[in-house]
């Protein structure tokens, strides 16, 4: 018998082992749900898959009686719009500041200390200020995501810029490049795959800020919905919504990886 650290499962076993925990969780849930529903048919805590399916069916396919909207899709659209806008603005700001502080010492000197302090401010603590300044509309929710995510991206980009070997910068100068040309042709193209990586890492935080902002002040959105129906203990809505948010997060992450691999194949072969 080989040592445990030398045992590598075959591809099929790896797949099966990977699926196993998911199957177990679903099984445990089904048993627990059945047991509770058998005791009390109107139990709300652990709805059966059938009950969840029915509820979500109305949310997805039937217009709301009050507003005539398809709630599930309206919520998804509103949330994704805020998330995309917030992350895109944060990525743009973070990339610009990270690139400039990492590449240009004269820019680093006044900006980097400020950036460090800003990134230590808990963004959620700023939410009241955002609501006061920007009102309760879309702007403050997007602003929360931007404030929460941009400093992280900026610092990550700054580190990545500084990690690009200085030899390349010197070489570019011996080829006659100006500062601007070095930024445009040498640094920015090499930083783009790293930016995608930073965005992937910050999407988790992005969702957190989004749902928090929606929970506090909103009239639609995935976060708004689950906090709204919490009052009626509607686990049959909350659980599918959480699963949907998880799926969206997974798909976004997957799309980012795929895009990055397709556009920047040189980056991945180099790091392998």
């Amino acid at each position: 018998m080989k040592r445990l650290i030398n045992l590598t499962p075959t591809k099929t076993t790896r797949w099966l082992l990977g699926i196993l925990p998911f199957a177990l969780i679903i099984l445990v849930y089904i048993f627990a749900s059945d047991a509770r529903l058998a005791e009390n048919a109107s139990d709300k805590l652990l709805p059966s898959f059938g009950q969840m399916g029915e509820t979500i069916h109305t949310y997805v396919l039937e217009p709301s009686k009050r507003t005539g909207e398809y709630l599930f899709w309206v919520d998804t659209y509103s949330s994704l719009k805020r998330l995309f806008l917030g992350i895109a603005i944060a990525a743009l700001i973070g990339f610009t500041f990270g690139l400039l502080t990492g590449a240009i010492p004269t820019f680093y000197a006044p900006v980097a200390p400020l950036l460090t302090v800003i990134s230590l401010v808990p963004p959620m603590a700023l939410l009241p200020i955002l609501f006061i300044v920007f009102g309760l509309d879309e702007l403050s929710k997007v602003a929360l995501i931007v404030i929460g995510v941009a400093p992280f991206i900026a610092r990550d980009m700054q580190r990545c810029t500084q990690e690009i070997p200085h030899e390349q910068i010197v070489k570019a100068q011996t080829l006659g490049a100006s500062t601007w040309q070095i930024l445009v042709r040498i640094l920015i193209p090499q930083l783009l795959p790293r930016l995608i990586h930073a965005v992937r890492l910050s999407l988790g935080a992005g969702w957190l800020f989004l749902i928090a902002a929606e929970a506090i002040a909103s009239t639609d959105g995935l976060g708004y919905r689950i906090f709204l129906v919490r009052r009626y203990m509607s686990m049959d809505v909350i659980l599918p919504y959480v699963a949907w948010i998880t799926l969206l997060a997974f798909v976004l992450d997957w799309l980012l990886i795929k895009t990055s691999h397709k556009c920047f194949s040189w980056h991945y072969q180099k790091t392998q």
């Binding site: 006659g176 601007w180 980056h267």
Partner: peptide, 27 residues
């Protein structure tokens, strides 16, 4: 080491020097 640009092909690595020379704005 680190003398060449990893994000450019062999040909691009060489022509970039002339591009720096003749295209100041976008290189």
């Amino acid at each position: 080491q680190y003398s060449v640009f990893p994000h450019l092909t062999v040909l691009e690595n060489v022509i970039i020097a002339r591009e720096f020379e003749h295209s100041p704005l976008i290189g």
